[in-house]
Simulated assay, not measured.
Amino acid sequence: MSVSKDVKPLPFVYQFIAGAIAGVSEICTFYPLDVVKTRMQLERGQSPSLVKSFQNIVRQEGFARLYKGLVPPLLLEAPKRATKFAANDFWGKTFKQMTGSKEMTQSLSILTGCSAGATESFVVVPFELVKIRLQDKATTFKGPREVIKHIVRHEGILGLYNGMESTFWRHLWWNGGYFGTIFQVKAMLPKADTPKSQLLNNFISGTIGGFVGTAINTPFDVVKSRIQGTQRLPGVVPKYNWSYPALALIAREEGVRALYKGFVPKVLRLAPGGGVLLLVVEFTLGLFRKALGPPYI
C-alpha cells in the first residue's frame, strides 16, 4: 500500500481496523472452500475431486458441516489480517530506512511480505490448530472449547503451538509471493486515475497475488495440515514433525502431486479472496482518509 509524498500515512489503529474488516469479509465469503481444502490435504492416497468432496460432505454430514470450525477463524481473522497489513506497513518502512531507499522496489516488496508473514504466523497458530482439529472428518470434538481443553490436558499449554514451524513457513512464503506480485502487477497495469479504476487495479493485483502466493505455499500448507491434524501421544514420534523433512516424506510416499492436495479449493478461495482482501482494505482506508481529511488525503 503506497501513498503519495503529500499524503501522511494513516495511524496504526486505522490500518488495524481496515485489515480486520477485510479479513472477516473474506472468510465469511470463502470459508466452505477452506473446509474442503483441509479434508483433501488430510487424505492419504488419492483424494476426491473438489466437486466430489463438496458432495460427500453435504450428503454424509449435512450442509452445516461446511461451516464446522468457523468460530476460530472468525476470532482469528481480525487480528490476523490486521497484523498482516500493519506488519507489512511496518516492515516496508523499516526496510526502506535500512536500505536508504525512498521508493518500494520489487525485492523490498518480497522481503517485506515475507517478514509480515513471519510476524503473522505467531498470531495464527493456536487458531489454525483448533480449526484443523474441528475440520477433520474423524473429529469427535463438538466445539473450539473442547479442542482447547483436550490439547492443554494432554499436551500442555505449549501444545496449542503444535505446528508453529510449518505455519511460519506457510505464511512467510504466501505473503512474500502475495505482496511481491501485487507490487509487480500494479506497476504493469494502466495508471488508475479514478477511484473506480483504483479499486479495479487493487482487485486484479490482489487476485493474481493470491494465486501466486497459493502456488508457492500449498506444499507447506499440506505439511501444516498433516502436522496439526495428528494428535501427539507420549513417547510416540509423530510421522510428520518438521516442514522440509515432511515435504520430502510426502513426495516419496505419495508422489510430488500430493504436495498440492487441496490446491484447487485453496486457489479458488485465496485468488479471488486475495483480491477481495486488498479491495476491502484499500476501500476502507480510503473512507478513513476522507473522514480524517488533510493531511491524510
Results as ranks from 00 to 15, higher is better:
126 P>L: 06
141 F>D: 02
131 K>F: 10
81 R>E: 11
120 E>H: 12
125 V>A: 13
107 S>R: 11
107 S>G: 05
94 T>C: 01
75 L>H: 04
114 C>L: 14
102 K>P: 11
71 V>C: 00
85 F>M: 09
118 A>M: 14
125 V>W: 08
109 S>D: 03
65 R>F: 05
93 K>F: 00
80 K>D: 13
100 G>K: 07
95 F>G: 02
103 E>V: 13
117 G>K: 08
137 K>E: 14
97 Q>S: 07
76 L>S: 14
130 V>K: 08
105 T>Q: 01
68 K>C: 08
70 L>E: 10
75 L>S: 09
99 T>Y: 01
116 A>S: 10
134 L>W: 11
70 L>N: 10
128 E>P: 00
100 G>H: 06
102 K>Y: 04
99 T>N: 04
132 I>W: 00
100 G>M: 06
132 I>S: 00
109 S>W: 08
141 F>Q: 02
136 D>K: 12
70 L>G: 10
110 I>Y: 05
125 V>P: 13
124 V>Y: 04
90 F>L: 01
116 A>E: 07
129 L>K: 07
66 L>S: 13
137 K>L: 11
67 Y>G: 12
118 A>Q: 07
117 G>V: 07
142 K>T: 10
136 D>M: 03
116 A>Q: 03
74 L>K: 12
113 G>Y: 03
104 M>R: 11
80 K>L: 15
74 L>E: 12
119 T>V: 08
132 I>V: 14
126 P>Q: 07
71 V>R: 00
105 T>F: 00
71 V>M: 01
133 R>G: 06
109 S>C: 06
79 P>K: 11
103 E>K: 13
113 G>P: 09
127 F>Q: 10
126 P>H: 05
75 L>N: 10
112 T>Q: 15
95 F>E: 02
133 R>I: 00
82 A>Q: 05
80 K>R: 15
104 M>T: 08
83 T>C: 09
141 F>L: 04
75 L>V: 13
123 V>L: 08
131 K>Y: 10
70 L>D: 11
111 L>I: 13
104 M>I: 01
69 G>P: 13
114 C>N: 13
100 G>A: 08
88 N>S: 08
67 Y>C: 12
76 L>P: 07
66 L>G: 14
132 I>E: 04
135 Q>I: 15
93 K>C: 00
110 I>N: 01
77 E>T: 15
122 F>P: 12
113 G>E: 08
82 A>N: 06
77 E>R: 15
139 T>P: 05
69 G>S: 09
74 L>F: 08
102 K>N: 14
111 L>G: 14
84 K>P: 01
84 K>C: 04
109 S>N: 06
69 G>R: 03
